[in-house]
Computed example of a mutant assay.
Amino acid sequence: MSSKTYTATAVIAHAAGDLRVETIEVPMPATEQAQVAIAYGGICGSDLHYFSHGAAGESILKAPMVLGHEIVGTITVAAADGTGPPVGAKVAVHPGTPGGTGARYPLERPNLSPGCTYLGSAARFPHTEGAFATRVNLPARMLRELPAGLSLRDAALAEPAAVAWHAVSRAGEVAGKRVLVIGAGPIGALAVAVLKRAGAAEIIAVDMFDKPLRIAAAAGATATLKADDTESIAAVQADVVIEASGNHRGLASAVRGAMRAGRIVMVGLLPSGEQPALISLAITRELELIGSFRFNDEIDQVLGALADGSLDLGGIVTHEFDVHDALEAFTTARDSATSGKVLLRF
């Protein structure tokens, strides 16, 4: 195999507030890897945490790291072992690698494996490099060839939409039900779109700001409420609540807004450590509090639904920036009052 290396433009977090667009070397891929020319990358909340704080929860930057795991692109070098898509194929990426031993978990739910790694994560050292670069090498098993007719731009939200799809699946049957979505940021808005496709009769979105609520309404919310209107939220009495704010106040609103015996799916990741919660109400109302973390194979269902038009994600992307303007892109994405999902163009 050729030892040829390529150069790529990458977005690298060095420390809190220190984000740089730099040139990196990309070697020829290993036997089980393909090389991908990245077209679009979506800025995720974890990327923003590394940018703003130098850490995402307990995952602390100890060395410069390429960010990014929400990516789509085109195969430029196919995997030499014959696995994966051919050169020229347009692909989305499943950024997780299950693994690890010790903690028990259901084998059919590899997202819960104790050693699961994700592209662009500082959870381990050396860090797992991300894919915000014009050219990257990725394991062929991560690659999902796009269905015919689905463009890279339209597939750019496949990864975060899979997170929302997994969360909605954790809620059980939602057709004909009243659903409350707390937090109308990108994951909340994507959950609204997935809920609409799944046949929810009412979808009430809650947020602090007008812009996310407008995005949620365009995605399929039948009503919107401001986060400080606690009386109206409590009056919703939803069959199902999707908590996507990642804030203990949002979780409190979820508990208050659920009907008795309702189900609350917690997809917004709260800070580590103890958090205040209305546990007494959860007990006396027999509420079901259910966690939702990343996803498994839901990205395949998302791609199919995008291709057949049954999942409409129009309006959720509010900004696109060239990779060289990554700092402006991250600054924009950090302001949830004025932006939804922000994409980088590579």
Rank of each mutant, 00 (worst) to 15 (best):
A156Q: 05
A34S: 15
E286T: 09
L313Q: 02
D239H: 13
R20P: 05
M28K: 15
G309C: 11
D207G: 06
T97Y: 08
H49Q: 14
I242H: 01
S245P: 08
Q33V: 01
E70T: 04
A80L: 08
A329L: 07
A329Y: 09
I283N: 13
I215P: 00
D335H: 11
G99F: 03
A15H: 02
H166Y: 10
P98V: 09
V323Y: 12
M142S: 12
E288G: 13
R153M: 00
E288V: 06
E108S: 13
V265W: 13
G273H: 05
R345G: 03
E58K: 13
F132H: 00
A133H: 06
D47T: 04
L251D: 10
A162T: 11
H319V: 02
A162N: 11
Q237M: 12
Y50S: 00
G42E: 09
P29F: 06
I12F: 12
G115Y: 09
S59K: 14
L157R: 02
P186F: 11
A329M: 02
A79F: 04
R141H: 13
A329D: 01
R20D: 08
T134Q: 10
F295E: 01
L19F: 03
Q35E: 13
A10G: 11
L327A: 14
T74K: 14
L180R: 04
H49P: 00
A217H: 15
I299N: 05
A161N: 06
K341R: 15
M142K: 11
I242C: 00
A329V: 08
A337R: 12
A156Y: 07
V302Q: 11
M266S: 11
P276E: 10
L119F: 15
A254F: 01
V66M: 15
H319L: 00
V11I: 05
E288I: 07
L303I: 07
L138K: 04
S253G: 08
A193F: 10
I279Y: 13
A326W: 07
R124Q: 14
T5I: 11
L48E: 07
G73P: 00
V179G: 01
E58G: 12
G314D: 14
N296W: 10
T31R: 11
G45L: 12
D207K: 04
M266Y: 00
T7H: 10
P212G: 04
V181H: 10
S310E: 09
L278A: 14
F293I: 11
S2L: 11
T331Q: 15
V265Y: 10
